[in-house]
Design a protein around this nucleic acid. Structure first.
Lengths: 345, 345
DNA sequence: CTGAAAGCGCTAACAC
DNA sequence: GTGTTAGCGCTTTCAG
């Protein structure tokens, strides 16, 4: 385990100065072909690899970006992360990854760590919180882009964001239930009332319901199997029980579906179901799930494009971008469509 | 956007030398409480943050590890990555993430990039390939741990690995089909014959079949919906069609399931199904899937523990660890269990 | 207990 | 075209 060769070693072996080596490595024009060739042989002979640390220290750039997200076991976040990574790779950047567990304090600490590591930009799925600190002045030196949820503006400073049409998606889901299937009593089920996406989807639900002149009912506590069962039971005991449930994210969908199955409630005959977020196997379920599908990959790659646009100075730093990506209502069977016809197996 | 404060700035403000500041920051003992306090105030006043780049350059350590994996959209890999990240966080290390797309050349290039960035260790889900180069001498300076698939030993050098009981898992699945359900003709379906896990599972399948005195049949080309349909159709046209299919990974399971549904083949009555790898909604399917479940989180965290064991010098570098984690046969309905009783909805 | 000097590996700026 | 000098921000070494 001997010391790694440095630029000096290469220079000595090639019989030139270190600067010449540096120039060759950075393919600067003013080097004669002959010397360049000599240097390259020396590099190859020694298996020389530039020390990125020294380079970063000198150049004030690290070719690194930071990615902060709540977790990676949720396929939604993981897919965003995947897409972002691909963009970074295209630009020859490396990604520093951190899991925040949806905790704003961790997020802040980790973001600072990344700053110390001289990341040139940050992509973040902000932690669910009222007191996010990613707007602190120390972060204003690098571009920051948020995905899925916007970063709350702090002291007037706003940051780029890429989100999806949460409201529109929810509204379309409800309108489908109301207009196509003639349903009137639709229950909204979410898992965290404070979450931006949750609020937006609830807003979409509310507005669609009120447009149709229907009364709303919502539960925001669908966080466990037990609770989901409770929610379903409560709902069915109502004098006028809901005819459909709109689950506002993949966790809620999963839990409610499981509860419904256990309670032996027939979907969609007895209770229709539409969910926000597509799930891996939802087309193979019985009934196949009708869902609002979000463009997960686009979220990540758009965030990446936004960030690199600024890093490569193609876009002025102070130009604010707020991209909202379209969602798609994927009509399958759980809403009641194609079901009587027996297509649903 | 002014220059960041350096240690020198702090030293000047506190009226001490830079060394004293350094000592305080690294909580070295030989500083008087009073000076230390002065330094700390100065640090706070300036909002000083140590420059990790300079530190890494000086110390030859970066508090960074590298993670290389095929992709993040596969929940299996993503969950491993999540677990590893959590371990790294415990040790106050940062993770450099790279997607290899299961390409050994990308993997090699990216691993070298990580080396240039002075990662202190590497965790990798090796790309499917006969010519992996992660055993090259340049990597022998840092500990390398592989997950899910072992790294092929190169020039005698072997590396730590964490895998799961692929053979045993497959064998148990087959034995269940044979012994509990009395099935004799079982088709093995995989997607990539070269993959380590695929081979191991096939080996388990073969050994279980031969122990039972049964003939084997295998397909290794389940890579698309169309192909899956073809596989099913081919199988059913056989003079003695299979009574069960064993799908050797989550992709194959997904595709075969979808094909079976489309072909209106009843599971498990007409054809039983057992898969390797659990899927997010597989307990909600009709029938619920019987699967061999792998400890995804354990894979990641064990790999992390192995790596940090060496980084913290608790374990000698040359001590080879080969951990094999147990899998679990999760019996649900697709194998035929609990099905006649109507429990499956 | 504290500070000054030297240098980690690299490159921008200026000589020649 | 090419080499020399200086210094990025930090810490090790060695004097005080």
């Amino acid at each position: 385990m001997q010391r790694k060769p440095t630029m000096n070693d290469v220079a000595r072996l090639a019989g030139v100065g270190t600067m010449t080596v540096s120039r060759v490595l950075n393919s600067s024009p003013h080097v004669s072909d002959e010397t360049a060739a000599r240097v390259r042989t020396a590099v190859a002979r020694l298996g020389y690899q530039p020390n990125e640390m020294a380079r970063a220290l000198r150049n004030f750039k690290s070719s690194t970006i930071g990615l902060l997200l709540p977790n990676l076991y949720d396929p939604f976040y993981a897919t965003c992360a995947h897409a972002l990574n691909m963009v970074a790779k295209e630009h020859d950047y490396t990604v520093l990854l951190t899991i925040t567990n949806d905790n704003a304090d961790h997020e802040y600490v980790e973001a600072k760590r990344m700053l110390q590591r001289h990341v040139e930009g940050l992509v973040v799925i902000p932690a669910e919180s009222d007191r996010c600190r990613l707007g602190d002045p120390e972060f204003s030196e690098i571009p920051v882009v948020s995905m899925d949820r916007p970063l709350p503006p702090i002291e007037g400073r706003e940051m780029d964001s890429v989100t999806t049409e949460n409201q529109t998606g929810a509204r379309e889901a409800i309108e489908h239930l109301v207009q196509v299937h003639g349903l009137k009593r639709i229950l909204f089920v979410g898992h965290k009332p404070a979450l931006f996406t949750m609020q937006e989807r609830h807003e979409g639900y509310t507005s669609a319901m009120s447009t149709a002149g229907l009364a709303t009912m919502a539960r925001f506590d669908c966080v466990s199997e037990a609770r989901a069962t409770e929610i379903c039971r409560d709902a069915l005991e109502l004098p006028e029980p809901p005819q459909a449930i709109f689950t506002a994210n993949n966790l809620a969908t999963r839990l409610i579906l499981s509860a419904l199955l256990k309670l032996r409630i027939r979907v969609p005959e007895q209770l229709a179901l539409v969910g926000f977020d597509d799930l891996e196997l939802s087309d193979l379920l019985h009934p196949a799930l009708t869902v609002v599908r979000q463009p997960m990959t686009d979220l990540g790659s758009t965030a990446g494009r936004l960030l690199f646009g600024k890093l490569k100075s193609q876009v002025p730093r102070d130009q604010l971008a707020r991209v909202v990506l379209p969602v798609e209502l994927v009509v399958r069977n759980s809403c009641g469509c194609f079901f009587a016809s027996g297509l649903g197996r």
